[in-house]
């Protein structure tokens, strides 16, 4: 694996990142000249829908490759990795929680979590303990493990998603509007658990949402439209 260490202190170090360049219109979707997040920081990325949030998430997690520029995660230059190496890096070092659909509906909750462990090549000896500890911390009853994922309530599913994202103890936790399907009190509880768990795990947390009310408790609040210089260059952004 190519180790091109730029700065080990940063969990995220983005430089001159461009994506979605279209030769026809000469427009770019996303342009981040510089963005750094220190390790262990909990960052709230705010922005209305359509400002390039999901593109940023795809780039951060190495699913998409930028057209230009660099993304370094934990000192690893993602752009220098092959697709397969990026997939492996994601499996080991990044936990992801989506808006709503986080679990394979026809697998048991236990299998869903083991799936992440499987791709992250986590040692299986302490896996049972690990899962049961995570469940305890996330206030999920152990009996849910044997149920099919689609039998759980949405709130339970989202908490299982945190467990799934944390099972490989990733350095980076990327979360995308996870509370949009939850009511206020449930989303409050979810946020508390998420922040506490990511802190316990020493994970850097990138939380993306359009809802500023959830920003309470984060170390840093970033406004994506401020960061994305495409708009300021005068080109309309289309997500």
């Amino acid at each position: 694996m190519v180790q091109s260490v730029i700065n080990n202190e940063y969990a995220i170090d983005i430089a001159e990142l461009r994506y979605g360049y279209s030769g026809k219109t000469g427009s770019t979707l996303l342009y981040l000249p510089k963005w750094q997040v220190a390790q262990g920081e909990q960052v709230f990325v705010e922005g209305p829908s359509g400002c390039g949030k999901s593109t940023l998430l795809n780039l951060l997690t190495g699913v998409l490759s930028p057209d230009a520029g660099q993304i370094c995660l934990l000192g690893q230059n993602l752009t220098s990795l092959k697709t397969r190496q990026r997939d492996r890096f994601r499996a080991r070092h990044i936990g992801i929680v989506f808006q709503q659909f986080n679990l394979m509906p026809y697998l048991s909750v236990d299998d869903n979590i083991r799936l992440a462990a499987h791709f992250g090549s986590a040692p299986s000896e302490f896996l049972d303990d690990k899962i049961s500890t995570l469940f305890k911390h996330l206030q999920l009853p152990q009996r849910l493990l044997q149920q099919r994922a689609d039998q759980l309530s949405v709130g339970q599913q989202q908490r299982v998603a945190i467990a799934r994202a944390l099972v490989n103890s990733p350095e980076l936790l990327v979360v995308d509007e996870p509370t949009s399907a939850l009511d206020d009190s449930a989303s409050q509880a979810f946020m508390e658990l998420l922040l506490a768990q990511s802190r316990d795990n020493n994970s850097t947390l990138i939380f993306v949402s359009h809802d500023k009310r959830l920003a309470h408790g984060f170390d840093q609040l970033v406004n994506l439209p401020d960061l994305n210089k495409v708009v300021s260059e005068g080109v309309l952004d289309a997500d």
């Binding site: 492996r88 499996a91 080991r92 989506f98 394979m104 799936l115 992440a116 992250g120």
Partner: peptide
């Protein structure tokens, strides 16, 4: 599609 996204998220390659 959502299922595939979940698989990709946990680190499954397109292969």
């Amino acid at each position: 599609i959502a299922e595939m996204a979940v698989l990709r998220a946990v680190g499954a390659s397109p292969w």
